[in-house]
Design a protein around this nucleic acid. Structure first.
Lengths: 223, 223, 223, 223
DNA sequence: TGCTAAGCGAGACGGTACGTCCCGTCTTAAT
DNA sequence: ATTAAGACGGGACGTACCGTCTCGCTTAGCA
C-alpha cells in the first residue's frame, strides 16, 4: 500500500505517479533534516512541487504520509539459514536494526502516537513498521525450534517480544542499538532458553573460525 | 521540579499556587480523556480557569506541562527486600508497571518525541519517567548481585535494559503488560543469568507457601 | 445563442439535448434559491444530473451559464402603439421592469462584473440583458419623435439612457421599481423634453377615461 | 469605520496599525491592476507582508476589505455654494463622478453583489459608496429648493434618484460618464423641474462670462 | 504609612498549518 | 469522431492553535 487508492474506478484521469514519488522523496528528506515535526503537508507539497490537495487525495494526513515513506524504504531481506542458531539470531537482529537505523529514533514515537487514534493507521503502523522487524528474528527463532535447539517449554512469542522490545526501547529512548548490544541480548535470552547453550556457542565459534569473512567476526565478543 | 521557577525575584506579586494545582489536574484529565493530542496549552488553560500566559510563565510548553503532571502522579514506593530474589524482581516490576498503567500507552511516545529536541526536556523525561521505573527493578537486581544469586559475568545494566524495554515495548505497541507477562520475563532472563535458577525458584515457592497474603499469590504461576 | 456549438463535426455521438434543458432549469432554480453566488458549475451539474465537463462543453463557465438561462427567460413582447406618447412610455417601462423583476436584483451586478473581462461575454450581456429592455422604451420614444411630441433639440439616446439607468439603479441598489416610480420618471423627463407636456397629459387622461381597463388607471396619479 | 474593532476591550496587545495601512494600500493596488476578482485575501496578505488571519481579524472577508479601501479613498469635499443652481448641480455631479472614476467600473457590481447577502455589509456599502455620492448632488438640489428655483410640486428625492442612477448606470454598464454627460442630465431634468429654466440658464451663462476661471468653463456647453 | 517596582492575571496579537471547496482540464470507455 | 463521466492538479478559503506582547491591577519590601 502506497497511497489511498492506486486505481479505484475505471474512468477518470490517471494519477500522476511522479507526484507520488516526489512526495515520498520530499517526506524522507524532511524527516532526515528535521525529524517528524519538520513534516507538514504544506511543506512536503512545496518541496515536491505540488499542492496540498494532491497529497490529501493520496494520503489521509501526515502520519499516512510518513508511513508510506517508510514502506518505500524498508525492504527487509529474508535472513539466511546458516545452520547455526546463534548466527541466525544475530543476523536477524542485525537486519532488524539496519532498518531502524535509517530513521531518526524519535520519529517512531511521534508517528505511533499519531497513528494510535485511527484504527486503520494503527494497523498500517504495525504491518509496516513492527511486523517486518519481528519477522527477521522470528524466522531464526522458529528454525531454532525446528532444530530442537530450544528447551521444550519455551514460549517463542514471548522470547520474540523480549528481543524486539529491546530494540524498540533503545531506539525510542536511548540511541539505536549497535551490533554488540544485539549479541548481548541474544546471549542473555538464549542462555536461559537454549536446551544446551554451551553447545550452540561452540558451534557458532567453530563457524566463526572457518568463515570469518562470511558470517562476520562478531561471535568472538560473545564468549 | 514542578514549574519554571518557584520564586524568581524578591519583590512583586507572588504566584498564585492554586493555578499550578488546577493546571496539573486539568492536564491529567485531558490526558485521560483524549490522550496526548487532546492536550493543548489553550485547552488546559480554559479548563483550569486561567490564561495561556499564566501557563507559559510556569512551563515551557505542552511537553513540560505533561511531564510536570506525570511527576505529580508518580511516587514510586521503594520495593521491599523480601530476601527472595525472584520475589523482589516480581515486586519491582509490578511497581514499575503500576506507574505506567495510569497513563494511556501512546502518550509516552508522543511526549518523548516532543522532548527529544530540547536537551533539558530530554533530561527531565529520563529523570521523571524512565529512571524511577528502572530503579524499582534495578534495586532488586543489585540485591541479587549482593546475595550472589547471579552468575559472575552477568552485565546487570544490560539485564535491566532488557527487562525495562519489555515493559516499554508492550506499553507502546501493544497493551499494558499484566503481572503474568512480568513473571515470564523474569523467568526467561533469570534462567540465563542466575547462578542457580532452580534454587531461586524453590526458595520463591517456599515463601509463597508461607506468606501467601503478604507477598501476593503470583508466585504460583512461575513454576 | 444557447450553447457553444450546436453541431460541430458531422460524425460522432450526438449531443444529449436533454442535458441543455436540465442545466438551464437547474441554473434558474439555483438563482432563485440563493442568488448568483449559489451558482457553481459543479452544483448545477449535480442538480441537472450530469457532470461538469458536459457543461463546460456547452458553456464557457458560470457567467455564460447564467446568460443562457436569462435568454431562455426573457422574451420581451413588443409594446403596443396606443397613439398616446405618455401611455406608450409607461407601457414600455412596465415591460422593461417586468423582465427584471423575475431576477434577484443583485444578480445583475455580479453577472456583469464577471462578463466584463471577456469581450464576448460582454457583448452577450449587452445583447441579452441590456438591449431588450432599452428597446421597449426606445420604441415608444421614437414614436414620440415621429409624432412631433418632443422638442426638436432633444437627444433621444440620452433620454433613453436616463430612463434606463433609473431602472437599473433601483434594481441594483434599492429594490425593484414599481409602476408608480416608472410614472414619476416619465413625468420628470417628459416635462423637460416634450414640446407641449400639458397637451400630452391631457391626451393621456382622456384615453384613461375611455379605456380605463385597457390602458390602466395609472395616469390619474401623474397630474 | 476602517476595521472590525479599533480598540474593543481594555487589555490585550494593541493592533499593529501599519498592517491596516499596508493592507489597504495593497488592496487598492490589486484593484487597479486586475479588478475585483484579482483580490484575494491571501494575495493581499502576501503583498502587505502579513498573514491571512491578521486580515480576517480586521475584516470579515474580501468585500469588507474592498469597502474599507474605498472609504480610505473617498473623501467627498462639500460642494461650494456658487449662488447659481445649474452651476451647483454641475459641481456636485462632478464631485460625484470624480470619486467613481478612481475605481474600475465593474468593481462596483461585483462588490455590491457580494455585499447584498450580509445585511451589515449591505449597510456599509450604501453608507460608504452610495450615500456620499448622492449627498454631493442632494446638497445642490436642496439649495435650489430653498432659492425657489424648482417648481413647487417637484419630488426632490426622486430627482436625485434619477440623477444618481444615471451615473451608476454608465459606471456599471458602459463607461464612466464625462462632464459633458453630466450637463446633459442636468439640462434634461432641470428643464422639467425648474420654475423658470431659461432664467437659470441665463444666470449660469452670465457667471460663466465673468468668472470663467473660477467657476469653470463648462457652462458654455449647456446652451 | 506611603512609594516604587516587580510580577501577576488576562486578552489580543502576528503567524503557521490545517483540511476543504471549487475550478477548469484530462483521460478513459461508450456510442 | 465525439460524447458522458470520473478523477485530476491546483488556487483560495476560513479556522485552530501556537508562542508572544501589552495592558492594568496586585502585592511586597524600602523609605
Amino acid at each position: 500500500m502506497t497511497s489511498k487508492a492506486a486505481r479505484g474506478g475505471l474512468g477518470g484521469r490517471p494519477r500522476d505517479t511522479e507526484i507520488d514519488a516526489a512526495v515520498t522523496v520530499s517526506t524522507l528528506e524532511l524527516l532526515e533534516e528535521g525529524g517528524y515535526f519538520a513534516i507538514s503537508v504544506g511543506e512536503v507539497a512545496r518541496r515536491a512541487g505540488t499542492s496540498r490537495p494532491a497529497i490529501y487525495r493520496r494520503w489521509s494526513g501526515r502520519a499516512a504520509l510518513v508511513l508510506a515513506a517508510f514502506e518505500s524504504r524498508f525492504d527487509t531481506p529474508a535472513p539466511p539459514d546458516t545452520g547455526c542458531t546463534l548466527c541466525d539470531l544475530a543476523e536477524g537482529l542485525t537486519i532488524f536494526l539496519a532498518g531502524y537505523r535509517t530513521i531518526r529514533p524519535e520519529v517512531f514515537g511521534a508517528l505511533y502516537s499519531e497513528c494510535v487514534t485511527d484504527p486503520e493507521l494503527h494497523r498500517w503502523y504495525l504491518r509496516a513498521v513492527v511486523e517486518p522487524a519481528r519477522m527477521a528474528v522470528g524466522e531464526a527463532l522458529h528454525r531454532a525450534v525446528a532444530r530442537g535447539d530450544l528447551r521444550a517449554d519455551v514460549d517463542v512469542t514471548r522470547m520474540l517480544d523480549l528481543i524486539a522490545s529491546f530494540v524498540h526501547y533503545r531506539t525510542l529512548f536511548g540511541e539505536h542499538p549497535g551490533d554488540e548490544d544485539a549479541e548481548h541480548v541474544i546471549e542473555i535470552v538464549m542462555r536461559g532458553a537454549a536446551a544446551d547453550y554451551d553447545a550452540l556457542l561452540a558451534h557458532s565459534l567453530s563457524l566463526a573460525g572457518t568463515h570469518v569473512d562470511d558470517a562476520g567476526t562478531h561471535h568472538v565478543h560473545i564468549g
